[in-house]
Structures are given as structure tokens and as C-alpha cells.
């Protein structure tokens, strides 16, 4: 079985390296751009904390928030990204990102259940700050489309991680775990805001 996978791996590698330059698109930079975009959110803990918090909050609030919040976030984040690309100045980006961790983490640790529209507006508001920070860096990417696909997918996976943590509330111990993670996110937010972290 192991040998079969090894053989398949070699065949795939062979096809990848067999690329000639007879294409209108060579694919050059696409993989690098994707990886660079994918790893970008992981380098900023302030981003990671907020993305995970959105997922946990969605799971805490149940349906339809569980899918609505992770849908609202990337779409509005893209609008923030557009502002960054266009170079429209937006004050308080870094504090806004830090405050997103504090507010979302606090809602989770205190088990606050805001109405759906309030949660959606909050998430959308914070998404603007996160998107702006990413969008401002997009024009420098070697392959902007691959870069944006990478970081949007990474963002979504962080939301899914948050949803998975939030889903633990089905068990009594899980509720404690999820709220503790929310507390850690809120505290980290204070750390980002004050410059300690």
C-alpha cells in the first residue's frame, strides 16, 4: 500500500516538473503566491485570534449564525481589502483588529447571546479592519489571485477551527473549554492593544 502511494507521488511530481513553456500561462508564481497568502494570516496572532473567535461565536449562537457569520466575515473583509487596495486611508486599523479580539472573546467568555443582526454587524465591522490590513499588502504579491485565494482559504479554515471548538458546547466540559478559549482570545486582544503581545 505504502509503495503504491510512493509510486503515485512520483507520477504526480513527474507531471508537475514536465511543464514546458508552451503555455499562455506558465503557472509560475501561482503556487508560491498561494502559499504566501495561505501562511500570511498565520503570522499575525491578532488575525488568528479574531478568526477563531468568529467561528466559536457562530457555533455558540447556533443556526443560522453558525454559517452566517463565517459568510459575512470574508465577504465584508473583501470590501475592507478593496479600501486597502485603493489606498483609501482608514484610521485605527491595528487597534480595530485588537479590539475585535477583545469584543468577540468577551462575548464568548461571558456567554452573551446578542441578536443575530447585532452579531453580524459586529463581525462585519471588525472584518473591515482585517480586510484592510490584507488588502494593503495585495498589490505587492507576485500572483495576487493565488495570494488572495490562499489567505481567504486560511481564514475560512480558522473559522472552521473556531466552529469545531464552539461545537464542544454540546458537552458540559466542552462549554468550559470553549469559554476558556474565548477568555484567552479576549486577554490576547488586550495584549495586542497595549503592545504587550
Amino acid at each position: 500500500m505504502h509503495n503504491r502511494y510512493k509510486k503515485l507521488g512520483w507520477i504526480i511530481a513527474l507531471f508537475v516538473f514536465m511543464q514546458s513553456a508552451a503555455w499562455a500561462h506558465t503557472g509560475a508564481g501561482a503556487i508560491g503566491g498561494f502559499m504566501s497568502g495561505f501562511t500570511h494570516p498565520l503570522y499575525g496572532w491578532d488575525h488568528v485570534a479574531a478568526m477563531v473567535a468568529v467561528g466559536i461565536l457562530g457555533a455558540f449562537l447556533g443556526r443560522p449564525a453558525i454559517w452566517l457569520l463565517p459568510v459575512v466575515f470574508p465577504v465584508v473583509m473583501a470590501f475592507g481589502g478593496v479600501l486597502g487596495i485603493l489606498g483609501i486611508s482608514l484610521p485605527g486599523i491595528e487597534p480595530g483588529i485588537a479590539i475585535s479580539s477583545i469584543v468577540l472573546g468577551s462575548l464568548i467568555v461571558l456567554a452573551v447571546h446578542p441578536p443575530l443582526w447585532v452579531a453580524a454587524v459586529l463581525v462585519a465591522g471588525f472584518a473591515i479592519f482585517h480586510g484592510y490590513a490584507h488588502g494593503a499588502e495585495l498589490p505587492n504579491a507576485a500572483n495576487p489571485l493565488a495570494y488572495s485565494a490562499g489567505f481567504v482559504i486560511c481564514t475560512g479554515l480558522l473559522h472552521l477551527l473556531g466552529i469545531a471548538i464552539g461545537e464542544l458546547i454540546r458537552w458540559p466540559w466542552g462549554k468550559t473549554v470553549a469559554r476558556t478559549v474565548g477568555g484567552v482570545i479576549a486577554l490576547a486582544g488586550f495584549g495586542f492593544l497595549t503592545g504587550v503581545l
Partner: peptide, 17 residues
């Protein structure tokens, strides 16, 4: 729907660029 949101977000930003 979540993957659809990723596609929308990625397309929108690069389109703007």
C-alpha cells in the same frame, strides 16, 4: 455557502486590484 463566500471574497479583492 462558506466556500462560496471565500470565492466571492477572493474574486472581489483581485478584481478591485
Amino acid at each position: 455557502r462558506i466556500i462560496g463566500a471565500w470565492v466571492t471574497a477572493g474574486s472581489l479583492m483581485v478584481l478591485a486590484l
